[in-house]
Amino acid sequence: MTAPASSRSSRAWLYAPFLLLLVLALGWTAFWFVVRSRVIDAVDTALAREAGLGRSWSCTDRSVTGFPFRVELRCGSLALASARWGEEVRVQTGPAVAVGQIYTPNLVIAQITGPLQATLPEGRTLDLGWTRLEASLSHAAGGPERVSLVVTAPDARLSAPGLAPETWKAASLEAHLRRSPSRPATDQAVDLALAVKGSVLPALDALLGTTEAGDVDIQATLTQAEAFRIGLNPDALEAWRTAGGQIEVTKLVSVKGPARIEATGQFLIDQTHRPAGQLQASLAGIRQIAGIPVGGLAAGLGGLLGGRLSAQLPGAAPGLTALPPVVLREGRVYLGPIRLPLQPLPVLY
């Protein structure tokens, strides 16, 4: 006996949710593969553009996975070769992964495994290790809006022929960049924030006469930042210099044991392609700078300058003594009228 048509119709509705779920799953799968294809095309386009600018990136064993809700770009190792510094610069790291969520396409998070090994001009080499490195990029149609970098236990060693290696390590490092919301568009300004905890830099230890680990907190604004769209290389630095670019340090606080420094300043690149500028600093708990006793120096300079070393910087912590301006000029470092016994500043490019 044949079942009534109304009975067959009612049973069909029982399967409707499952059919709808199947259609949605097939549609989402197709959508994910479309997004994956666009990501691959965007990466290939970016790599081709970088190659045209003299920078060759290599991503070994590249794969794009992450279905169903993410897109993950993975590299067995990441390498960069650039000829923009005259001599070839080569940088290589361990495995790297960049992740973007389907529902937040304007945010990318990347993790890179160390160590980083770099071959630099003039025979120099850089070895940089860490226990964790994570970066994030928030972008819009007009380009990057915010970039953040968090590094745990960075440990660096810079070697050069005929010179003793220079080392630096820290417990952690955080860096953040964003388009400045308070500056006019003509300034092309980017706000920067840098925080370093537990920093150990032997060169600074020798300068200040203390070996205790230190913390550094810096806030600054970089103007004419569009010059660096082509990367960090001599052409970009020269374009930035000729455009009148500056780094305006609005806050610098360094604490190293009992020593504390607070400062503000402005920096640029001069016509000889060396760093130039001025830093106005206040300090406490520092006995010497480059072997010169601070007490005697402050007293002597106070006499030369009419006893004007007691003023504090605006917003400086109580108990800090203001120093004469630290000036970078013609490759030398001056503290007020006194040239410090330091090596000349290097040419940047």
Rank of each mutant, 00 (worst) to 15 (best):
S172H: 08
R332P: 02
A298H: 02
S77C: 06
A193S: 15
A141N: 08
S9Q: 14
A322Q: 13
A12Q: 10
A12P: 08
E122Q: 14
R38I: 00
G123D: 03
L222H: 06
R8Q: 06
R49K: 14
P234V: 03
A48E: 13
L149H: 09
T167E: 01
G27C: 03
L268N: 05
G231S: 06
A98Q: 03
D187S: 14
T186K: 08
A25L: 03
L297R: 03
D235I: 11
V347R: 14
S199R: 05
T272Y: 03
A290M: 04
S172D: 12
L305Q: 04
I292A: 09
R178G: 11
G142S: 15
A153V: 06
A135P: 01
L126A: 03
L309I: 15
Q224T: 02
R90D: 08
W13K: 13
L268D: 06
V196W: 13
P115I: 03
L279P: 00
W57E: 06
V23D: 01
R308M: 10
H139W: 15
V200G: 03
G307N: 13
Q271N: 06
A263T: 04
R241E: 02
G306I: 05
A175S: 10
A16L: 14
E212F: 08
T119F: 12
W168Q: 10
I40T: 11
A236P: 07
R124W: 06
G162E: 04
V294F: 06
G27W: 08
R36W: 03
L348E: 07
Q278H: 00
A160C: 07
P341M: 04
M1Y: 12
V91T: 11
G162F: 15
I109Y: 01
P234K: 00
T113N: 12
E226H: 08
T250D: 10
I40A: 15
I112R: 01
R339D: 09
L222M: 09
P121A: 07
E145I: 13
W168N: 02
A290V: 10
